[in-house]
Design a protein around this nucleic acid. Sequence first.
DNA 1: GACATGGATACAAGCGCTTGCATTAATGTA
DNA 2: TACATTAATGCAAGCGCTTGTATCCATGTC
Lengths: 323, 323
Amino acid sequence: MAVTIRDVAEASGVHVSTVSRAFSAPHLVNPVTRTRVLAVAEDLGYRPNRAARALTTGRTHNLGLIVADIANPFFPPLIKAAQAQARLRDYHVFVADTDEDPQVEEELIQTLTKQVDGVLLCSPRLTNKTIERLREEVPFVVVNRRVKGMPTVLMDVGRGVRLAVEHLAALGHRRIALVTGPSGSWTSKEMQAAAAAMSGADVTFLGPNPPTELGGLAAVTDVIASGATGVLAYNDLVAIGLIEGLAERGVDVPGDISVIGVDDIVPGRLSRPKLTTIAMPTAAAGRIAVDLLLGSVDSEATSGVTVLETSLIVRESTGEAHS
Amino acid sequence: MAVTIRDVAEASGVHVSTVSRAFSAPHLVNPVTRTRVLAVAEDLGYRPNRAARALTTGRTHNLGLIVADIANPFFPPLIKAAQAQARLRDYHVFVADTDEDPQVEEELIQTLTKQVDGVLLCSPRLTNKTIERLREEVPFVVVNRRVKGMPTVLMDVGRGVRLAVEHLAALGHRRIALVTGPSGSWTSKEMQAAAAAMSGADVTFLGPNPPTELGGLAAVTDVIASGATGVLAYNDLVAIGLIEGLAERGVDVPGDISVIGVDDIVPGRLSRPKLTTIAMPTAAAGRIAVDLLLGSVDSEATSGVTVLETSLIVRESTGEAHS
DNA sequence: GACATGGATACAAGCGCTTGCATTAATGTA
DNA sequence: TACATTAATGCAAGCGCTTGTATCCATGTC
């Protein structure tokens, strides 16, 4: 059916090994032979079969990218960047969605492991233990979670929290609420830690909450009860839900209460009022994670932790405190 | 390194072919042998190498999914659904982003073709001719575009347009503007055709415009100049940009002008006012496309066209005409 | 008791490719 | 002229798996 290396060999009157080398070890073949072979290959429309190649080289030139939920606006920019970076290095990427299910996640890794050179684990729901076990089978890079001894890409949400709280304080807000995320979330823990470490700020924690608009909606009563005039939400979705719920109670944002989100997802940029938010460099994370992975495929597994800067983007959901 | 079928064979005292059959042709091996082999395999942590299997069977159990832009909110639900459906059938999926570049798209297909059993082409930017040529190399299913003789999944945006215009008319809007998309867009053409075919509606076409908020922003002047009180935008992003721009000119939505988007993406659901929109069944499209693809992998290539229903979701960006 | 039958397993080729080694021929060296 | 060197190519094994065919043995049949 498809044209193979053998067809090219026959058509150009050389041995298959010469064809092979014409592609993957040019210096070992006579330039004129090579040109001829390449021409014939082009002519026949030959495309090397990567799977077959993988079988002998042990290198598939494929990557796995595992995320909890593709449809969560946080991930697409990361996926896009990772995919683009991989392509630059002549790698293809399998994208898999675990639906937030650790078991699916593990199974996915298991079946993927044989056909990839490494996998990007984004915000994994697996236990550290499991990850460490799986690590024997395939190189990992973990994004958005700290796993002992593994190459990791983190975003410095702590810094973002500090900037956010300072911003709020500068606007005159004295009582601040932190609407936390799911209890298992590494990011949520980081945020709490960072907030708690800030002296001089009066921060109360409200949660845990699901990481969606519903979570924000659900937190409305508590937020109002807390007496806070500045709120930092677990993410933009929560922030939007919160603003929504506040509006229903007649509370204006930013007039009465200021709200800051996290992630800088598209919906936040487009919502009204436009969200002040802590921007997470997801695209950079995807790009760097791929580099790390491909780097550690050749050299020995790195176990470094890369921390990416976050920043505060001030838009319209924060304003001066009036009370 | 990794445990192979041979290891399992040795450990359980049978020939490799028996192990192979224990997995893929159970009825050909004695139940007790099979149980033993399976146990040993489990024990050793054996996982079949799909690439090696593909080499002999010609079936990779992989799919390619090619989209113009992963980060465009329109696609993630489709990707997610396709991926989930593929997983159900024990398929993995390569996701590739072409960055709207036809050349990248073609190249991606070329390199992917050998390691997939079929590819999902979503809103391709390639010419029909090229697609028809490429089709020789690998089975396709095309989503969101009509290509002669190829299995296709379409969403009935025409119906959506009709519903939208009727909705607007029912609210008393007499002059309606259609803010069109990019000139090459199949969807945009469909929308225009559907609107033009409606007797009794006074619809003016404004465009072409880029399919983003910027496109909406850019169309503001024309919309106002058109005297329309009801606007149908190419998609939600354009609609949001438009509403934004209108607000800057002091024009209220839906007070002064009603705006309807297309796609029902998350940002539209969360923006203020919440967007009235024509919902596109993207998840269903992804799911069905995969089914079609996997169906046509076995049977002979179908060339049917599946048309999915769209619907109008009325939210807050449309209201009664006052002028 | 000789033989056909069929179930269970082993054998071996081969999928498309890479790669260490052998072979050949051309060149340089003394 | 004889020999070493090297560049270019061919040869063949093997990556992990499937699969058509051969082999073996325990039945059943007459």
